[in-house]
Design a protein around this nucleic acid. Structure first.
Length: 288
DNA sequence: CAGTACGCCTGGTAGC
DNA sequence: TGCTACCAGGCGTACT
């Protein structure tokens, strides 16, 4: 699932390829994805790209911004005269536009930005720049790993903050780590892998973790997210970068998605359960 | 307030 | 083979 590393990969790509381009037109092929009036953004140029948790904000040269969430299967793909031959590696669709293309931003110089989304859970909203952070999803975002390092402008998830969040919660640890209002950016893949690396049973109550376990979990969260960032994200589903290319983390997962496989640590069979409605992968021998 | 169930959606797959 | 039934899952909403 697109999480912090995947969305950050998109942010870097958009920053490199999209900033400076002028939006000449917007083709809305699926109106349920696009909220707002396209007239507010046509004619404006792309000024900057921000990421808030798993969300993106494209700031324009006028008073508007685009708020974007790609949810499970969204793709943002940029093409111009130089990149146009890059195929999209996922969904066997080969190129864009395709049957999953719902929004096309036509940019100056014959460049385009495509929004594809197989399951159409994602959204793109036109919002005034000075009001974009009032969207509940952004406003309620918890502190984020690497916020300071990446210069995201969000509150940084320090070890102290992490300890406070974990030790003050009676919730089950895995859903807590994935709660965007508590901690921003972590989804199912990285939550599973971080808990495995920290050797903590995902079913534990958060406030039952010792100080040492909390520290270990903190380090593990940063470790797996960093691995994800360095891999250009995880493309286990439909995620591709701005040029339509796969990331690499799906080849490095520790336990996530390893149904029927064995624990990389002890060799026993990975257990799959549901926790708060989400698929949960762990090793009952290694994670206590 | 915290926790849970459901809806959104469709490609993939298990089961017949 | 071809059909049906069910599942995955981030997040908003409704409900307990």
């Amino acid at each position: 699932m697109p999480e912090l590393p995947e969305v950050e990969t998109l942010r870097l790509g958009l920053k490199k390829y999209l900033v400076g381009h002028k939006i000449e037109d917007v083709e809305i092929l699926h109106p349920k994805i696009f909220f707002g009036d396209k007239k507010d953004i046509v004619g404006a140029a792309v000024k900057g790209i921000r990421r808030v948790g798993k969300g993106l904000i494209i700031d324009l040269s006028n008073e508007f911004s685009l708020a974007i969430h790609i949810k499970l299967t969204g793709q943002l793909i940029y093409q111009d005269n130089k990149t146009v031959k890059n195929p999209v590696s996922k969904l066997k669709v080969g190129s864009v536009p395709n049957k999953f293309t719902h929004i096309i931003f036509r940019l100056n110089g014959d460049s385009k930005l495509f929004y594809n989304d197989q399951r159409r859970f994602g959204w793109i909203k036109v919002v005034k720049t000075n009001e974009v952070m009032n969207l509940p999803f952004f406003k309620e975002m918890g502190p984020e790993p690497f916020a300071e390092e990446l210069g995201s402008g969000q509150v940084d998830l320090t070890l102290d903050k992490f300890e406070e969040i974990i030790s003050n919660s009676k919730t089950v640890i895995k859903p807590l780590v994935m709660d965007q209002k508590k901690i921003g950016g972590i989804g199912n893949i990285y939550a599973n892998d971080a808990l495995f690396k920290a050797k903590i049973d995902p079913r534990r109550k958060a406030n039952s973790l010792s100080e040492a376990e909390i520290r270990k979990l903190y380090d593990s969260v940063l470790f797996v997210l960093k691995k994800g960032l360095d891999s250009g994200g995880a493309s286990e589903l439909t995620f591709v970068n701005i040029l339509g290319q796969d990331g690499g983390y799906q080849n490095h997962t520790l336990v996530y998605g390893k149904r029927g496989k064995t624990c990389p640590n002890c060799g026993s069979k990975i257990k799959v359960i549901k926790l708060a409605g989400r698929g949960t992968f762990f090793c009952e021998i290694c994670q206590k």
